[in-house]
Structures are given as structure tokens and as C-alpha cells.
Design a protein around this nucleic acid. Structure first.
Lengths: 140, 140
DNA sequence: GTCGTTGTAATCGATAAGGTTACAACAAAA
DNA sequence: TTTTGTTGTAACCTTATCGATTACAACGAC
């Protein structure tokens, strides 16, 4: 199954917040229209990004703003902020293989390291891009 | 969301088929008990592996066997055989960002390459392990 | 106090996974 | 030829997650 679009939506949101910071107020409605999803979906993700310490959200008056320099935020940070993959890992392992079977008994020992490595490779790749780089490309 | 356990189940199946090839008949019931899932789930995956050309399944008499040398099958091959990530990519991109917004208009240009790279990094890691290696480790 | 906005709950439909039952098609042994 | 064990496949169920949507109280600025 695919990884939730929260990653791309959150990245889109962060880029928009920074891109429009001197131009207009980036409310959930404004962002929703740029991303083209429901404002409530935006707000939920804004809260996740806020909880991760990346942004501030102005409660009464509205709008969001970056709290950290874009060069200090990687796509991996965003990924971790909005996805719930951390807890259980990227790959879903079948529960309780038969410990009475020589294969079932050792399948975890044999596979776990490889799965972790594959996940780490993906995350390492995400970590190599910062928001600042994306912003620079966006403005070209 | 997590990647389906079909990957770990299929790998378990292939290892068991090879491990028990001279010891007993690897029927879907036998494999189901080692993996600890329903036999129908096993059969569905067996068909996917067969369609990928990795195994043969004996219809009337029962049992499955490898059709390719374990050194020629990588975890990426298994991943591709049982998962449907290929078509749409690992990451789900939000549909139809607003093309009238300067951010929405360019978000795909800016992100697509990075997402592909992250996916490729993960797949490259999976490709570095063969079934033969896993088998060798299993028998230690 | 009004107004626009956020935080949050509740509910919905869609999608996918895995579990389970059931049974026809099939191949080999009796 | 009949029996037996197994596969291929359909059908249906439950659960989980996603994103859409409505609704509204809490909040801050004017």
C-alpha cells in the first residue's frame, strides 16, 4: 500500500507558508485551496507540524508561520512529523510465525535487518533534501 | 501506512519451499501452518509468485517448488511479485494541486524526483539480498 | 461584541488487507 | 474407476485507514 499523501501535503503546506509569508495570511482555507483538499485535513496536518516544532499556528487571528529555518527542515523531518510509520516500521511483518518450524523460528532473525536497512535507505534519501532547497527550486 | 505483509509472507514461503524441498511436500496447508496465516492467503501469494515465474505449483497432487535458482531471486523481485506499488509509486501524491497557485503549479516538478529517489533507494536496498543468502543464514 | 479562524469531535464513503467458508477442477493413488 | 488430497477461485466478512465533510465551541484581534 502507498504511503499517505500527508507527506506531500505537508511539504506543500510548508513551502506555501514560507512562499507567501510576506504576501498574505496562510490560513487553513487558503492552504486548502492551494493543495486542493478539505480545510480540516489541512488543520490536522498543521497541528502535527506544530507538535513537531516546525511551525506556529495563530489561533484566533489565523495563519501559520515557520518557526525553524527552512534549511533546518528535511523531508525526513516532515515524513516523521506526519506519518505514523515510526512506531511499527515501514514493513508489516506477519505476526507469530510458527516457532516449531525451523523456518518460522528464524525468519525474523533473517529478515529484520534487511527490512530495517531498506527503510533506512529510503529515509536517508528523504533526509538529503531540505525545505530550503525545495524553496529555491520553486522560485526558479 | 505500512507495506503489506505479503512481502514477508512471500519470502517466508520461498524459503520454506526450498528448505523443505527434499523433506516433505510444501502444500498450502503446510506453509500456512509455518507462516501462521490462512491457507487461502498462502495460495493467493503462491499464484503471484508463480505468475512472476519464480515457482511451480502442482495442481492436483499438491506442493510448490522453485523454478529459478535462489541466487537469482532478490527481495526486490519478491516485493515486485506480490506488491502493487509499481503502478502508482510508493508515495501517494495529493491529486490536483491548484495550478493557479505558484506553489501548487510547481509542487510536482519539485517533489517528484525526490520521491522517486527515495523509493529507488529502498528498492535498491531490497535488491541487494538474494534468496540464497537468506537460505544460508537460515541454516546457520 | 462581532468576526474570522482554529481546534476538535463525529460521521461518512472508499479502499485494501487478511480471515474464512465453500466448492469445482484437477492429478495421482487405490 | 473411484477415492483422496490439493489447488484455483469466488464470495463474504471484519477491521483499519484515509480523506471528505459538517458542526461548533474556543479564541484573538478589531
Amino acid at each position: 500500500m502507498q504511503i499517505s499523501s500527508r507527506l506531500t501535503i505537508a511539504t506543500h503546506i510548508l513551502l506555501a507558508i514560507e512562499y507567501f509569508k510576506d504576501k498574505c495570511k496562510t490560513t487553513s482555507d487558503f492552504l486548502a485551496s492551494s493543495v486542493h483538499v478539505n480545510p480540516v485535513v489541512i488543520r490536522r496536518i498543521l497541528l502535527q507540524l506544530r507538535d513537531a516544532g516546525m511551525i506556529e499556528v495563530a489561533r484566533g487571528s489565523g495563519g501559520a508561520s515557520l518557526k525553524v529555518d527552512p534549511s533546518q527542515i528535511t523531508m525526513l523531518d516532515v515524513y516523521r512529523a506526519v506519518d505514523c510509520v515510526e512506531k511499527k516500521g515501514l514493513f508489516h511483518f506477519h505476526e507469530s510465525p510458527d516457532r516449531n518450524c525451523p523456518v518460522g523460528r528464524r525468519i525474523h532473525d533473517v529478515l529484520d535487518g534487511r527490512l530495517q536497512a531498506a527503510q533506512a535507505a529510503m529515509e536517508h534519501s528523504l533526509a538529503s533534501t531540505t525545505l530550503a532547497e525545495l524553496l529555491a527550486e520553486l522560485k526558479d
